[in-house]
């Protein structure tokens, strides 16, 4: 590791010379530049199948035909090997926190998401990559890598073919997965044990 020297001072560039017409007025310092994109989303065939199953509290993944890695949500391909991954597998709604982020700044327009909130890669049992979700049901400060969690689903009447069926993931109280075996490390360990190649 090398030390990167800090600059002695922040460069400010040359002083800006203004014409008389704007030199004695209050300068504009900021500008509003909102952006907005409206689009029709049509999920891929694999995602359609996934969303319909998700509406009945089933979580589907894809198994790679190359090395058996299980991806969730399924995309219909193994992107590492550039091959179709048609095999669907059912996953359980339990797993562990592979990595997480505690956010203290609110998102404008998301009054349903009070801060601090915890977003996490949930590594479902049987899956080899993380599944993005919120962790709740405990203090943000108590969330940790390896913590076992289970899905808290919306009431059945509110389920639909959307990504919003799991409200959040809550601690199960089971013993943690050791950090050295949690998250993407699990796949690396599995590959090392079988003499395999690159990680998922």
């Amino acid at each position: 590791m090398t030390d990167t020297p800090l600059p002695d001072e922040v460069g400010e560039g040359p002083p800006i010379h203004l014409p008389p017409s704007i030199s004695d007025v209050e300068p504009v310092l900021s500008v509003r530049t909102p952006i907005r994109l409206e689009y029709d989303f049509i999920p891929s065939a694999a995602a359609q199948q996934y969303l319909r199953a998700y509406a009945s509290k089933r979580i589907l993944g894809n198994r790679s035909p190359v090395d058996g890695a299980v991806f969730v949500p399924p995309r219909g391909v193994d992107p590492r090997n550039g091959v179709v991954a048609a095999e669907m597998v059912d996953l359980v709604d339990r797993g562990h926190v592979g990595s997480f982020c505690v956010t203290h700044l609110p998102i404008p327009g998301r009054k349903d998401l009070p801060v601090p909130y915890v977003s996490a890669w949930i590594h479902l049992d049987g899956a080899d990559i993380g599944f993005l979700g919120l962790v709740a049901g405990c203090a943000a400060a108590d969330v940790r890598i390896g913590m076992r969690v289970r899905a808290v689903w919306k009431p059945d009447a509110e389920l639909g073919a959307t990504a919003e069926n799991v409200l959040h993931w809550e601690p199960t109280g089971e013993p943690d997965v050791p950090v050295a075996e949690a998250g993407n490390r699990a796949w690396a360990l599995k590959q090392a044990a079988t003499g395999g190649g690159d990680g998922a």
Binding site: I35, R36, E38, Y39, F41, A161
Partner: peptide, 10 residues
């Protein structure tokens, strides 16, 4: 096919 009208806004 499923479809959704989505908006991204910043």
């Amino acid at each position: 096919p499923l479809r959704a009208d989505l908006v991204i806004e910043y």
